[in-house]
Amino acid sequence: MKHIEANNVNAYYGENHVLKDISLTMKANTVTAFIGPSGCGKSTFLRCLNRMNDYIDGFRKEGDIFIEGNDIYDKKVRVEELRQKVGMVFQKPNPFPKTIFENVAYGLKIQGIKNKNILEEAVERSLQQAALWNEVKDSLHKSALSLSGGQQQRVCIARALAVEPSTLLMDEPASALDPISTAKIEDLIAELKDNYTIVIVTHNMQQAARVSDKTAFFYMGNLIEYDKTKELFTNPKNERTENYITGRFG
């Protein structure tokens, strides 16, 4: 089933044309990796999927994006509701300067949910899903900033999961982390796939190969190649893809 569908998406920052006619579809409960050299538009495209670019002065988008069959740029869509369905994890762990509990409960709190039992349940469930519960269950009311970088990133994942999104966007979620934390995040992605559709931007080609089902290679705003991950890495159709994955530029 098509979960995400983009049709002829173009994006501009002022005069700068950064996404050129991108069309692709992603199935539900799969992991899709975006790879490509720095500045090729991976983050921009990812941020189109939950409309995080809306606030940027001079940003403009053409084309349509459907998630679960809904045109997410339709005038009737409330962008706040969209972002509850399409969660995001950022490159640098960015927990709120509040307790672990408050971090994870934030999404529910802003929806007006105050019931303590519901919040506690959601916090525990999300931290379990983020493979963090055992490490922090006795310190839920300590500041999230006191955790290690890897733990902070998992708090951010738990925070995103707490509102039960259907889709999780991750923009280089492990690039600021040490190898052990990175491995944990990768294991986590493999587990979350059962319940979520995941799109991950990564600089690390081994990571893309390890975690994703399909991979999209972007180059200078163009979608050069999009295929099953195994196929793209072992048998690239395009010369530029081959050059990139063999490390000849990038």
Binding site: R83, N94, Y106, G107, R159
Partner: peptide
Amino acid sequence: SLREASFGMGA
């Protein structure tokens, strides 16, 4: 990053 985290949660 703090604002983005909040907007990203649907605030």
